[in-house]
Design a protein around this nucleic acid. Structure first.
Lengths: 147, 147
DNA sequence: AGTTGAGCGTCCAGATTTCCGACTCAAGCG
DNA sequence: CGCTTGAGTCGGAAATCTGGACGCTCAACT
C-alpha cells in the first residue's frame, strides 16, 4: 500500500519562517544589517509598534539571531547585534530586496542601493554552488533524501 | 536645520514583505514551485487553515504572484500558477531553504533536496552580478540613491 | 533645583488575524 | 443512493498586533 504522505511538510522553508517569519522580524534584521542596532532607532526606521518590536527582539534573541549586548552601564543600555546565524540571513534579505527593486520600485528606482566591495552596485543573484550558474526554477527538480 | 529624517523607510524589503510576508504566503508559493497547484493539495501540504489559505491565495492573485486558471469546467476547478513575477521569488525561497538547511536541520539532514540540471545537489549561493563573488554583509555598504 | 529629552522599554484596551471544526455545494463513482 | 473529491465558506474562540500612555535612569539645559 503506497501511502501518499500528504501531511504538512516541515521543510527548511517552513522552519526558517517559524524563526523569522513573524511580522517585523526581517525588518529588524534589515536595520541591524544597516547598522542601526538600538531599540529606538529600529522603532523609528521600521515603523513597528514599540511593543511589538520589543517582543520580536526578545524572540529573535532567544532563537539565536540577535545578541543583546550592553553598550553602556549606568543607564543600562543594550544594543542588538547579529550572531553568526543572523548574519547568514543576508541572502534572504538580499533576495527580498532584489525582488522589490524589480517589481515594486516606482520610476525613481530603488530607494536604497548597496555598493559591493568590487566597486559595483550590488545586484544579487542566486547561483548553484557547484556549477556557478544562475538558478531558475525550471532547472531544479525536488528529490526526497534517502532515509 | 538638518532634519534627521528617521521616518520609517519603505525599502524594497518592506515592500516585498507587504506582498508575500503574511503568514502562509511563502509556503503557498513553495507548494506551487513543487508542482502542487491545487487548493486541497496546498492545504494538506502546508497545514494552513483552509480559510486562511483561501484568503492568502486571493491576495496573491490580486498582487500578481499567482494566476487562477480553470483546469476543469463543470465542476469548475481552478489551479494556481506562478506568474513571471511569482517565478522570480525563487531566490527568496532558495535562500530561506538554505538557511533552514544549515541552521535548523537535525541529524537526518535537510528534509528535501533539490537537484540542479548540472547534476549536483543544489546549494544556493548569492553572488554579486558584477564580479560573481559570493556576497557577505561586510563587503557591502548602503548608499542613498542620488535623488 | 527644576525641566526637558534621550533611551528603552512595559502595560493596557481594542482591533485584526488566525485557527479549527463543521458545513455547503457540485460532480463523479459504485 | 451514499461516499468521495475538490474548493471553498461560516462562526466563534484564541492569538497577535496596534497605538497611546506611562515608568525608569541618567545627562544636559535654564
Amino acid at each position: 500500500m503506497v501511502v501518499s504522505q500528504a501531511e504538512p511538510r516541515t521543510c527548511s522553508i517552513a522552519r526558517t519562517l517559524e524563526v523569522v517569519g513573524e511580522k517585523w522580524a526581517l525588518l529588524a534584521v534589515r536595520e541591524v544589517f544597516l547598522g542601526n542596532r538600538r531599540f529606538d532607532e529600529m522603532v523609528r526606521r521600521t515603523g513597528a509598534p514599540r511593543d511589538t518590536l520589543a517582543a520580536r527582539l526578545r524572540t529573535l534573541v532567544e532563537r539565536g539571531i540577535f545578541e543583546r549586548r550592553l553598550y553602556s552601564e549606568h543607564p543600562a543600555r543594550y544594543e542588538y547585534r547579529l550572531t553568526d546565524a543572523g548574519r547568514e540571513l543576508y541572502p534572504v534579505i538580499l533576495s527580498l530586496m532584489r525582488w522589490g527593486d524589480r517589481h515594486l520600485a516606482g520610476e525613481e528606482g530603488p530607494p536604497l542601493l548597496l555598493e559591493h566591495s568590487c566597486g559595483h552596485t550590488l545586484v544579487a543573484e542566486v547561483v548553484c554552488e557547484a556549477c556557478r550558474e544562475p538558478v531558475s526554477a525550471r532547472d531544479v527538480r525536488p528529490v526526497l533524501p534517502v532515509g
